[in-house]
């Protein structure tokens, strides 16, 4: 067995199988598990998916939202057990893989085009 196959075998059971289809531009809810002492609660972080990076076990997503007028970006390892669930709230259309230009925009110009034009190539 070659080395790459061994690595993939080791991480296989760590990969999440219940991740919905999320495209860059979509507004998503990330349900984070937060452990405080011995208690655990779930906090939801809602924002725009502005980039996906890496592949397999190393894949991570960047989610951006506005909190009190200032931008907050969080990077989640896609397969982290600390994320309970991902939810797609709204689909949007994007011609770019990374929406970093949103960082320079405020107000109405941060809106993304609704995914109507691209409905055909949506899987579901």
């Amino acid at each position: 067995m070659n080395r790459q196959a061994i690595i993939e075998g080791v991480v296989q059971d760590q990969l999440k199988t219940d991740v919905p289809r999320m495209d860059v531009g979509d507004t998503i809810n990330v349900h984070c598990r937060i452990v405080e002492g011995d208690k655990e609660r779930v906090q939801v972080f809602q924002g725009t998916l502005i980039g996906r990076k890496g592949g397999g076990i190393n894949e991570s997503i960047t989610v951006r939202r506005l909190v009190d007028g200032s931008g907050v970006e969080r990077v989640f390892p896609l397969n982290s057990p600390r994320v309970a669930k991902y939810e797609v709230v709204r689909r949007a259309d994007s011609r770019r893989a990374k929406l970093y230009f949103l960082r320079d925009r405020v107000g109405k110009s941060t809106r993304l085009r609704d995914r109507r034009r691209g409905m055909k190539h949506l899987a579901k």
């Binding site: 690595i7 190393n58 390892p77």
Partner: peptide, 14 residues
């Protein structure tokens, strides 16, 4: 040595 990757332990630490 096979190679490096990442691992999430029981506490979810990466």
């Amino acid at each position: 040595k096979i190679g490096m990757t990442r691992f999430f332990n029981e506490e979810g630490v990466n």
